[in-house]
Structure formats: structure tokens, C-alpha cells
């Protein structure tokens, strides 16, 4: 009898040990946490911003033709009348760099930036003086090829309408512009002139570095003001005749737009 109790105990202990070590991936299951892991099936605790850190807001001012960009409006781009119907892009890997070169990155903040929304919470950073802000336009290669259905709708990385994800090559659309251009030269954008500039895939991740003094302090508003200049983005583009790309179908246009992305962001003056 004693022996069977011993056996039972041994079996139970070994089974429990084995169970906890197997299959299910451990990690943080709270989407609001800094270390959220969409693959996690067993909650092993989450990390949240500490009290020493200060919430920082990013203001993205989007400009074109000397004014503010408003979606579903008409602009003259490179001499061609153009409706910009949808303009949105991902900003991620937001990093503040101090004078000594120390970098603080909020790896888990992904922003889907639209002209409608100017202010974005970019998480908490330690109070201090910084000399540079660095960020990616796009999504890092690991997250880029994760399953978007593991994120809730409403999360920037979840399903979007209009879609910001390609199924056919399985990755996010880093930057999406839909519009209509004046293809026949009568000064009015036509439905025949519909275009799509959709940039994505790992090779098109653009890391932007902007040098300017940023002070983060408790009690301040702590807003980082950036400008996105869309005239720069469209530089060199033949808006009437060569205006559509989904990367693989028009590599030349994609490369041109990608190079322009590096020049379009600046600190607000």
C-alpha cells in the first residue's frame, strides 16, 4: 500500500513537471504590456512601464503643397491634379538617443499613422535630455511575418479596413497611398487614373534618424513634433503615367519612393 502511494505521488509529480515543460509557449498575454507576445499561450507575467518613466506623445504633422494634408482632397503633385484618398503608414521601433549614444527603444509600440490623427502615444521613456529620435517606417521582419489574426481588431497590427496587410506575400503594407490622378490631362483627376502606391516587404523597412534636442521631464507635456512632407515623398514621380506599385510589380517606382521616405521627415520648425 505504501509503495502504491509512493508510485502515485511519483507519477503525479513527474507528470506535472512534464506538463509544465511542454508544448504551450510561455509569455506575456496582455496586449497593453510592453512585452506582449502574440504567440504566448501560458501567461508568465508582463512588464509595464515603471513609475520613473514619463509618457511621451508623438505629433505627426503631415504637409503637402505648403499646407496640411487632408485625405480625400485634391492636390497638384508634380504638375498633375491628384486626389489623395487614403494615406497611412506604420511607425515602429521608436528610439530616443542621448548625447552619449545610449538608445531607449519602445519595441512594442506600433503606430498606424493617418492624417486624421495627429497625436500618438509612443509609450514611456526615462526623463532626460536626448539628441536624436529614430524610428522605422514599416514593421520589423519578425513581427512583419507574424499572424495578424493573433491581434485584436483595433490593435494597429490587427486586421484593418482598408487592409494594411498582404496575404499573397504575407507581410504588412508599410505605407499605403490610394488615389486618382489626372491621366488625360484635362486638369481633373479621373477614375481611370486610379493608382495605388503600396510599399512593404522586409527590404523596404526604412530607419529614419532625426537629430534635434528633446527633453523629457516629469510634469511637462512631452510632445515630440515631427513633420512628414509629402511633396518630398512624391519627388520624381510621373503622377500621370507611372503611379502604381505593390513593390514586385513596379520595383523602379518602389525604389524611388523608398529613397524619398528617408528625406521626408524632419523635426517641426
Amino acid at each position: 500500500m505504501k509503495k502504491s502511494v509512493f508510485l502515485l505521488t511519483l507519477t503525479t509529480i513527474s507528470a506535472v513537471m512534464f506538463l509544465s515543460s511542454c508544448a504551450k509557449k510561455e509569455g506575456c498575454m496582455d496586449q497593453a504590456a510592453l512585452n506582449f507576445d502574440p504567440e504566448a499561450e501560458v501567461d508568465m507575467g508582463c512588464e509595464y512601464a515603471t513609475d520613473d518613466d514619463v509618457a511621451v506623445t508623438l505629433h505627426m504633422h503631415q504637409n503637402i503643397g505648403g499646407g496640411e494634408l487632408v485625405e480625400e482632397s485634391m492636390y497638384t503633385i508634380n504638375g498633375v491634379a491628384t486626389n489623395l484618398n487614403l494615406v497611412q503608414f506604420y511607425v515602429s521601433a521608436i528610439t530616443l538617443v542621448d548625447a552619449a549614444g545610449n538608445e531607449i527603444t519602445n519595441d512594442d509600440v506600433y503606430l498606424l499613422v493617418t492624417p486624421e490623427e495627429e497625436a500618438y502615444s509612443i509609450g514611456n521613456f526615462p526623463a532626460g535630455d536626448y539628441t536624436q529620435i529614430k524610428f522605422d517606417i514599416g514593421i520589423d521582419s519578425v513581427t512583419n511575418h507574424a499572424d495578424p489574426s493573433k491581434y485584436d481588431i483595433g490593435n494597429p497590427l490587427g486586421a484593418q479596413f482598408p487592409s494594411m496587410h498582404w496575404g499573397w506575400s504575407f507581410g504588412y503594407i508599410f505605407l499605403r497611398i490610394d488615389g486618382e490622378a489626372d491621366a488625360d490631362g484635362n486638369g481633373v483627376p479621373d477614375t481611370d487614373g486610379q493608382f495605388e502606391m503600396h510599399l512593404g516587404s522586409d527590404a523596404y523597412l526604412a530607419t529614419i534618424e532625426i537629430d534635434f534636442p528633446i527633453t523629457i521631464a516629469e510634469g511637462n507635456e512631452n510632445i515630440v513634433h515631427l513633420d512628414a512632407d509629402w511633396d518630398t515623398f512624391f519627388t520624381g514621380v510621373d503622377m500621370a503615367n507611372d503611379n502604381t506599385t505593390h513593390v514586385t510589380d513596379n520595383a523602379a517606382l518602389s525604389s524611388l519612393l523608398y529613397e524619398n521616405i528617408f528625406n521626408m521627415f524632419s523635426a517641426e520648425e
Binding site: D147, P148, G167, W168
Partner: peptide, 15 residues
């Protein structure tokens, strides 16, 4: 171009 049966579901729906 797409890794799993689960993730493939988006392709026909959104194409």
C-alpha cells in the same frame, strides 16, 4: 508566398 492554412484565409477574402 503564404505560410499556413490559417494565414492563407486572408488571401481570397481580400484579393
Amino acid at each position: 508566398g503564404n505560410p499556413t492554412l490559417e494565414t492563407q484565409v486572408y488571401v481570397p477574402i481580400e484579393t
